[in-house]
Amino acid sequence: MKGRMNGGGLRAYAVLYLLFLYAPIILLPLFAFNAGTIIAFPLKGFTTQWFQEMWGNPTLRRALTNSLTIAVSSSILATCLGIFAARASTRFAFPGKGPIMGFIMLPMVLPEIIVAMSLLVVLLGAGIELSILTVILGHVLMCTPYAIAVLTTAFSSLDKSLEEAAFDLGETRWGAFRLVILPLVMPGIISALLISFTISLDEFIIAFFLAGNEPTLPTYIFSQLRFPKAIPVIMALGTVLVALSIVLLALGEYFRRRGNARIGATGTGGLV
């Protein structure tokens, strides 16, 4: 065998793989701007009609508002809880730490439908009315393990003596945390917020079970798929969501890299 690798077959595989991943997503904007109502080639012409219809649809706007409310709230809550848990698990030793952390991380691998179902049973049993609040509750449960995973990396890469040094130099414990630890784990916090936001925004099962009559984007999209007339609008909505995700991800990565460059570090809890 020659020393150089002949990547002919592998290259084809890589191209096919990427095509399979991204071709459907590329189709979204294509049909979102297509004048025809049927999702099929050939394209009929350019239009922004579907975007206008989307913007003019009150249910869709309500779903969007709900989804954003849920995603923002649950990502902030999950990240805050994640900060507590990550700091506790990296900085302190306490009895039962292993099992406690294990149980907190478990929702990552539990079938979501089981979580959603048991939450529904409990909430109904407790007489709590279903609303976007209950969805937020469920999403916090789902997002927290991811936030912890990201934040633990950020916290554990910190030198323990940084905090001691700040304390030794006369700061209070809170001052040491605020002035030294927080700025240094900020890239991790932003990553955790972004991940939680993304997970919450496109989460379907829990939203479907716990939202009551309130629509969220995924449940709304699912409900509209039955009507062929609505499909181009969904395509437009999808286009907006994909664009938004890309912008968010790019922003997060930008801040993370800038933060790392500022402290001369290489990668603490990044996404990409």
Binding site: D159, S161, E164, A165, D168, V180, L184, I263, G264
Partner: peptide, 20 residues
């Protein structure tokens, strides 16, 4: 007397320079 109130200051092995 906690460390932040003691008339001592420390140079750490890792120096613990605040990188930010």
């Amino acid at each position: 007397v906690p460390a932040n109130k003691r008339p001592t200051n420390m140079v750490f092995q890792s120096y613990a320079i605040f990188p930010h």
